[in-house]
Nucleic acid binder design. Structure first.
Lengths: 210, 210
DNA sequence: GTCTATATGTGGATAGAC
DNA sequence: GTCTATCCACATATAGAC
């Protein structure tokens, strides 16, 4: 009964090994981000990735079971970063709050286009994020719902309209003026437009006729 | 490739050959659309494409110099189709006109997701549309500017805001509810919101404070 | 335990036979 | 104009060296 179980105290070799394995995985992911930023999201090559961390391609399979698993881990990192970027206190004023929120999401997305592409577009064949990697995105949706409710946006379509507005600004900025400010300048006006249309006082004002 | 300008007389063998070549190119492109609709835009395989038109892969190079050239020809077809979809008379009423325009673009984009992906997202590594294939898209932008001016939207940001709004609705619909109507239902409200905010009477009404 | 060597299958692309 | 044969890069899987 005195055999040393491998799953006990800290400082056991197995724990150190796990930590080292995790460190290597992080190093691989960091190199993967550099490569996709350089060559594009779909152009990730395992050979080139392995070379960048001083390995041969097959050795990567000791850390990730497939190329799609690497994309999934990257998705998880991006998803968590998006959630972090969205968090933080918001001004009490409704207009200022939604402006601030829009700027946070816009800034996060445009600061790293390939990360945004991985998160918000489904462009890699056969890739679908695992539930674990997707969880922060789900929490983001819930967070948005909380914020909208807190500021009095009780229209059930408010969240969908908001994501369309902010996502539209981001997509146009990335596609047609990467690195510029052509759509960034429209953030405040768009947020105000949303608040004025969907806010508690001015619910659903439509055109006069009809 | 618009090499149909052989500048000779009609009915010459070279013309008949050119016509037949063009017919084969069209057949290849039609098969390519079927494949990308089936397997995804990035998963187009020349071998499978050739088999679908009764050839071997190398024979495709008699009609297109590369795989990217096939994507480019597809982009040209999609671009022309988008321009056609946008055309047509519009109601005199400003609200109705912008609603109609939004529905046309939205319907075009959501009716064929891979076509929209090829047109509006830059997802294929190293692919950039040629000036010839891109020309209809340029004309579309000009057309939008004409329409906005005609209906009195003289704010220089009106076109950029409009593309962001409509593009945002389309992107969300395709990404999060393909085949559904979750964002389609928001088109009229979004168009009205745009008109009320950017129209001649109500230019740039911002929040009261500040 | 960690990596390399090797093998398989698929991809785009080219050369040359017919 | 289409084919066969081939090349090179790729992801992937397995066996075995250390």
């Amino acid at each position: 009964m005195l055999e040393e179980a491998n799953t006990e105290r800290a400082d056991l070799p197995s724990d150190r090994r796990a930590a080292r394995t995790q460190a290597t995985k992080d190093e691989i992911l960091e190199a993967a981000w550099e490569l996709v930023r350089k060559h594009g999201l779909a152009a990730l090559s395992l050979r080139e990735l392995a070379a960048r961390v001083g390995m041969r391609a097959p050795s990567l399979y000791q850390y990730f079971p497939s190329k799609l698993a690497i994309y999934d881990a990257m998705f998880g990192q991006a998803s968590r970063a998006a959630l972090d970027a969205m968090n933080g206190d918001l001004p009490a004023d409704r207009h200022e709050a939604m402006r601030t929120l829009a700027h946070r999401v816009f800034g996060f997305a445009t600061s790293d286009p390939v990360r945004a592409q991985l998160l918000f577009q489904r462009t890699i064949p056969d890739f679908e994020p695992s539930p674990e990697s997707y969880a922060p995105s789900v929490e983001m949706s819930a967070r948005l719902g909380d914020v909208l409710a807190e500021y009095g946006f009780d229209d059930p379509d408010a969240a969908d309209l908001w994501t369309a507005l902010v996502g539209g600004l981001i997509a146009q900025q990335l596609a047609n003026d990467p690195g510029g400010t052509r759509w960034a300048r429209l953030i405040d006006r768009t947020a105000d437009m949303f608040v004025d249309r969907m806010g508690p006082r001015n619910r659903a004002p439509r055109k006069k006729g009809k």
